[in-house]
Design a protein around this nucleic acid. Sequence first.
DNA 1: AAAATAGTGTTGTTTTTACAACAAAATGAG
DNA 2: CTCATTTTGTTGTAAAAACAACACTATTTT
Lengths: 221, 221
Amino acid sequence: MEYFSLLKSTKIFSDANEFECQAMMFCFKTRFKSFDKNEKIITEGDSVSDVCLILKGSANILNEDDLGNISIISRVGFGEVFGLEELNNKMECFKNNLVAKEKCLVMFMNAHRLMNMCENKCKRHELIIKNLMSMLLDNNKILLEKLNILSKKSTREKLLAYFKLCAEKNDNTYFEIPFNKTELANYLSVDRSAMSTELNKLKSEGIIDFDKKQYHLKKSQ
Amino acid sequence: MEYFSLLKSTKIFSDANEFECQAMMFCFKTRFKSFDKNEKIITEGDSVSDVCLILKGSANILNEDDLGNISIISRVGFGEVFGLEELNNKMECFKNNLVAKEKCLVMFMNAHRLMNMCENKCKRHELIIKNLMSMLLDNNKILLEKLNILSKKSTREKLLAYFKLCAEKNDNTYFEIPFNKTELANYLSVDRSAMSTELNKLKSEGIIDFDKKQYHLKKSQ
DNA sequence: AAAATAGTGTTGTTTTTACAACAAAATGAG
DNA sequence: CTCATTTTGTTGTAAAAACAACACTATTTT
């Protein structure tokens, strides 16, 4: 099967063999689609019934308001999903946009089938549900972490909270972030130029160091 | 059973009869504990292995930083859970505090047992897993909604985003919020006095009206 | 009912951030 | 390599928020 080499290394299909993968793909009514850079994979307000799984490339989950302000909620890459919220069946429409950061290959799965497979005879249902749950928990954790960052009041505190988290996740005070400066400002919901000033202040104070997307948190406070 | 009347109306035990409830309680090694107002139910940094289910009262999920700034992440009440993140087994310790807002009765369930019951013979495992998943999805949604609020830059925008959400959830422009003004400021991560000023400005502009915890969103923009 | 506590609104000052506009540097496409 | 585009840093100004201090009101507690 064309996509098995990709699927087998995703969390959701982990531990499933090719035959099982194929059976599940049929069961979930999967379809594949490619997206160009900056193309919208999901548009806010869409009432789709599918969950997306990113198989190639990466995408930004965006929140855009009426005034055109863009806020990056989170970045999703290979093996990550978007749209799990739908599994609840209650959601009328998406509350955010999903926009390709680069050329993307996305697999869509029917949310209802994914959730209700328990009632089917599908052999690996327990596994998938467990994997789904695990992904959902990861998602939850990421959102909570972000809330802890955004609940800081100043740009400085937000930056430091974010860098601290990155360093912890990396288990290293040297780390690379997935954002350029403009994106980082959108991610932290702060003004880009004010952030730029603050970043360079932190650098001159010897608290952090950075070059491009490489950062070094020298003092955690 | 003493607690069945409470448990039967929680989401997690919905559709389980008294006998099944009892079996599951045994399986999950449940224990009960009461907490006074302002008492910490869970302390940040605790490496507990239990999930909490609120059976009476309500509690705040708090994020407190080194400087003593308090931010309310979310409010949990009857039937709601805290600590699902643990189900992933990867979490070393809690990242937030759970503090009783009033006198509380809390049921603790062993996270590992909850998650791995599939492998047991427990009759209702499918149901519980589905309920758990559903709660996790709710949780996810709440966190995303809050992120959408906190990603607004000004206090005014945060207030309006929050009120808009409340009105939508209530399906009514008149609604009651679970916070007093001080708590609302902590929830939105803004300065209380600045918020107070902004609130009264919005009122004088005829955009909102409020009295105590009762609000009316007159113009949604 | 009185006293203590918690909640709310107001003000002025200081600090921080947003915003806008620009210049320089880096990147990418042809 | 060159040109166009994107990214980054800088500055000054205006706006907003934080902070602190206080007065007043409402709510509990005793």
